[in-house]
Simulated scan of single mutants.
Amino acid sequence: MSHASLTRSAAYASIATALFLAALKLWASWVTGSTAMLGSLADTTLDLIASLATLLGVWVASHPADENHRFGHGKAEALAAIFQVMLITLSAGGIALRAVTRLVEGGQTAAAEEGIAVSLVAIVATFALLAWQRHVISKTGSVAIKTDHMHYQSDILLNLSVIAALVIDQFLGFGAADPLFGLGIALWLAWGAWRAGGEAMDHLMDREWPEERREEFLAVLAKHPDIRGVHDLRTRTSGADDFVQFHMAVDPHMTVVEAHALMDEVEERIAREFPGVEVLIHPDPEGLVNEEGVAAEELLPDRAG
């Protein structure tokens, strides 16, 4: 399957799961009166909205570059992830408010058996979805699916918390358990939103590749005997697309034709080692110093061996 087909399939699976679980939890919230279950329902409802946003994001991101978007549409995934983060944050705030109100005003849950059964079904369905999402992420690296995946991971803990709250409240007689677990769920969701938001912002702000990957890229360049040095290396990721640009020091006596042929060779080598990366190379005569006063040769790893 293609990148676009995989990400869309994960988004469709997420929507179907959220619809199924929302219907179950709506009924369970009504029969149990549990704050934790209500929080789980609110989270699942927002899961559905977020999954629809994810589908839109990966659909837009799958469009190829065009006249108005020369670098493609990959950042649509990051925008979808940011939208999800906003929804998760709202969900966490609503659940926390409900939990605090319940602690102050009191109240009791009911129908523990039904609530526990619904939560167990939700756990099984969520595990199945997470397994497919992990497969899609391993193949595509989609930031939107990663955010969705992280949110559904928290749903496992959320549903376990609902079970624990109902058991402690109704079978052990500790009435504050339900709102306390609801508050814990809210804090967990807020932490997940913070982490997911950071990765999405990295994509939107064109954060450099991790240092390890940059070093691997430079090591590939260092293997070519005609590359005398590299400077002004810039990297970024946009959705499923990676972009690299750099200045390459070459023999100052090379003709333009020879330098062009060398760049073609380098691009072919990069394509083999880093498939799918879009590369822009600027040739410089050896010995040129960049604007920061750093010689190109200084940025290539040791060629020894």
Rank of each mutant, 00 (worst) to 15 (best):
G57F: 13
A61W: 08
S51K: 05
T109E: 04
I116A: 01
S51H: 06
R102W: 10
L103E: 04
A117H: 09
H69M: 09
L48T: 08
S91G: 15
V118Y: 14
E67T: 13
E114N: 05
R102H: 14
V118E: 14
I49L: 14
T54E: 10
S91T: 15
P64Y: 00
A65L: 04
L56E: 06
A125I: 01
I123H: 02
L103T: 03
L79K: 08
V60M: 13
A125M: 11
T44V: 13
L97N: 02
S62T: 02
A76P: 09
G115R: 06
L120T: 01
L79P: 01
A76L: 10
A117I: 13
D43Q: 05
I49T: 14
G106W: 12
T126Q: 07
N68G: 10
L41R: 03
M86A: 07
T109W: 10
S119N: 13
S62Y: 06
G93F: 03
T89E: 10
L52Q: 08
T101K: 12
E114S: 13
Q108N: 04
G93C: 08
H69N: 10
I88G: 00
S119W: 08
A80I: 14
A96I: 00
A110W: 10
G94V: 01
A125S: 11
S40Y: 09
L103Y: 11
D66Y: 06
G94L: 06
F71V: 11
T45E: 03
I82K: 02
T89N: 07
S51G: 02
A96F: 01
P64K: 00
V104L: 15
D47E: 11
A99E: 01
L52G: 08
L79I: 15
A53M: 15
W59M: 08
A76I: 04
A122F: 04
L56C: 11
L46G: 01
I95E: 00
A50K: 13
L87K: 04
V85W: 05
E113D: 14
A92V: 02
I95P: 00
T54K: 03
E77V: 07
V121T: 11
I49K: 01
A80Y: 10
G115A: 08
A112L: 11
L46F: 12
V104H: 09
S119G: 07
S119A: 15
G93A: 10
P64I: 02
G106F: 13
W59P: 00
T126E: 06
A80C: 11
V121E: 02
A111H: 08
A76E: 09
S62H: 03
A50Q: 15
L97K: 08
D66Q: 04
L87A: 09
K75L: 13
A61L: 07
G115F: 05
F83C: 10
A111Q: 08
T54W: 04
A50M: 13
R102D: 05
A99Q: 01
V121K: 01
G94N: 02
N68L: 15
A76F: 14
F83P: 07
L103F: 11
V60E: 13
G115D: 09
F83K: 12
I49M: 12
Q108E: 09
D66K: 04
L55K: 10
A99S: 12
G74I: 15
S51M: 09
T109R: 03
D43F: 05
